[in-house]
Amino acid sequence: MTELAPNEYSTTLNELKAQVHRARLQVQRAANNELLQLWWRIGDTILRRQTEQGWGAQVLTRLAEDLRAEFSTMKGFSRANLFYMRRFA
């Protein structure tokens, strides 16, 4: 096995670290984009149901409880956040 010269190793390590940093940033951006789209779709759905079916604030309370129960490891499904999502849409 051939050993790398110290400066070659250092250069290689720095290149690999930069690749990891770039990949992590891309993943974070993609995840944030998906969450924004999800929040908009949730808000849009709420807006449409309120317009079409006359949903009131009590429905949002129940939706918040049911979404938090189903997705207990996720944050962001409070009643207040559902109102924010509706406003966002």
Rank of each mutant, 00 (worst) to 15 (best):
T2M: 13
T2Q: 14
L4T: 05
N7F: 14
E8K: 12
E8R: 06
E8N: 08
S10F: 05
S10M: 09
T11R: 13
T12V: 10
T12K: 14
T12R: 15
L13Y: 10
N14S: 15
L16H: 11
L16P: 01
K17T: 14
A18V: 06
A18R: 03
Q19K: 12
V20D: 03
H21W: 11
R22W: 06
A23R: 12
R24S: 12
L25Q: 12
Q26S: 13
Q28G: 01
Q28S: 15
R29P: 03
A30D: 13
A30C: 07
A30Y: 09
A30K: 12
A30T: 08
A30R: 12
A31P: 04
N32S: 05
N33Y: 08
L35N: 10
Q37S: 08
W39F: 05
W39L: 01
W40N: 07
R41L: 01
G43R: 00
D44P: 00
D44F: 06
T45S: 04
I46Y: 00
R49S: 07
R49A: 09
Q50L: 03
Q50I: 06
Q50P: 01
T51I: 04
T51H: 06
T51R: 13
T51L: 07
E52R: 14
E52C: 09
E52K: 08
G54C: 06
G54M: 04
G54W: 04
W55L: 09
W55C: 02
G56K: 09
G56Y: 00
G56W: 00
G56Q: 10
A57N: 13
A57P: 06
Q58K: 13
Q58A: 11
Q58M: 12
V59W: 05
L60Y: 00
L63H: 06
L63Q: 07
E65N: 07
E65L: 05
D66G: 01
D66T: 11
D66V: 13
L67G: 02
R68W: 01
R68F: 02
A69M: 11
E70S: 14
E70C: 05
E70R: 14
F71W: 08
S72K: 15
S72I: 12
T73C: 06
T73Y: 09
T73A: 13
M74H: 14
K75W: 08
G76H: 03
S78N: 02
R79F: 09
A80R: 11
A80I: 04
A80F: 09
N81R: 04
Y84E: 03
R86F: 00
R86G: 03
R87D: 08
F88T: 01
A89C: 01
